[in-house]
Nucleic acid binder design. Structure first.
Lengths: 219, 219
DNA sequence: AAATAAATTTAGACAAATCTAAAAAATAAT
DNA sequence: ATTATTTTTTAGATTTGTCTAAATTTATTT
């Protein structure tokens, strides 16, 4: 299926939001993409016509199987390019996202498969996210960044990727350590910050930055 | 200067056509880009407003210095990606053009400079065309593909890149050999074929395909 | 040099992707 | 169970890049 750059961006974003919630709603997608809710509705109609979306007016939407497959192709391209930028060009993993965002729209399957082979068919990208293979299959990670964890689901802290003294100090302060029980109570879309509950301590708020660096797995 | 993908395509095409003729005209650019002449006029107005073009209504146009610099940046990206596709991903040089055409619009200077370093700052792309450096400078090649040679300018055949028996047979037939005097009398934009004069032989027509593989230099 | 042909530009229309403001529907609150 | 609030959709406008058809300008013929 031939998709415009814009359609691809919507599909990818819906896919990403679906990781956290069953059904996606207009406002959260508008917020995520920095567009108006009206634009979202417009695009939803198009994607529904293209049969990539389950969408009932006023009641939210989600990708159907075809939509999911398209999303996985886009994500595969994105993550392979990120891997390339970090491992071959020596860019820092915090800085490659925007460039991969552009490269991902170049959609020649031959290019992507050759790139995949050249990179040694990596399974995980520099941010710790899995890279779909040519069939769209992704390895199941027990471990995920806390920022990608669903709301209100218990987890155990498995690792911390940015082990600076400042980071460790903060974790200490909140009583977060490897093995801690953790649960997200609320996610603020505005800045990615999270209200969390650690073991039996009182609730606390951590930044989106911190939430990218704390990894957890199922309880 | 921030340019749209479309603007970039026009600028690059004008640059390429300028290699062969002093002033470019509406119809030849329309033909080159497979659009209508009316679309060309529309875009010329925009590029003139952006001060990238010298353009006098009805009398043709050409890039000014700013336009040339933009063109060189786009061409640098295009040729570096072609080099990457051939030398790193193992694609064939006849097949990389379309993909490079898409990749060239990703315009992060940091990306391109890191790619350049990674590739070893190549000076010539897989088609034998020079790659502009970060300042837009290109090495002066005495040797150029015949297809890029200006009309009615004497040249000497310096080499032939596709030395298949079929190719050699044809060259033989026309009396084309290394060292032959050669001159283009007319170029057919439709298929890239050329009417040429070799030494004192009668005129003949060669295909665009052949014209890509015959290299010449100044007399 | 007047008529014809070719090239170029203008006028007006259209699709894609976006917006703002207003209307409609669903949810929450009293 | 009404009312108020929030969310979502519609209506109508805008920008970019494109088109066709008609008008204009330049070039070519006779």
């Amino acid at each position: 299926m031939k998709l415009s750059e814009s359609e691809e961006n919507y599909i990818k974003s819906i896919y990403n939001l679906q990781e956290k919630t069953e059904k996606v709603n207009t406002n959260s997608l508008a917020n995520f993409l920095n567009t108006s809710p009206a634009s979202i509705t417009d695009m939803l109609k198009k994607l529904k016509i293209k049969k990539l979306l389950e969408y009932k007016k006023y009641y939210g939407f989600r990708l159907n199987e075809a939509g999911n497959n398209e999303a996985l192709k886009i994500i595969r391209r994105h993550r392979l390019w990120e891997y390339f930028l970090v491992t071959k060009l020596g860019m820092e993993w915090e800085k490659v996202h925007d460039i991969a965002e552009e490269l991902e729209h170049v959609s020649s399957p031959d290019l992507i498969n050759k790139l995949d082979i050249y990179l040694g068919k990596p399974k995980i990208d520099p941010h710790g996210d899995p890279i779909p293979d040519e069939k769209g299959k992704i390895i199941e990670l027990k471990q995920k960044a806390l920022k990608n964890w669903p709301l209100k689901r218990n987890a155990i802290v498995s690792s911390v990727s940015n082990q600076t003294p400042e980071m460790m100090e903060m974790l200490n302060h909140y009583g977060i350590a490897i093995g801690s029980q953790i649960k997200i109570l609320k996610a603020f879309e505005f800045d990615g910050s999270l209200q969390i509950k650690i073991a039996r301590n009182p609730d606390c708020i951590i930044s989106g930055q911190a939430a990218k660096n704390i990894f957890v797995y199922d309880n």
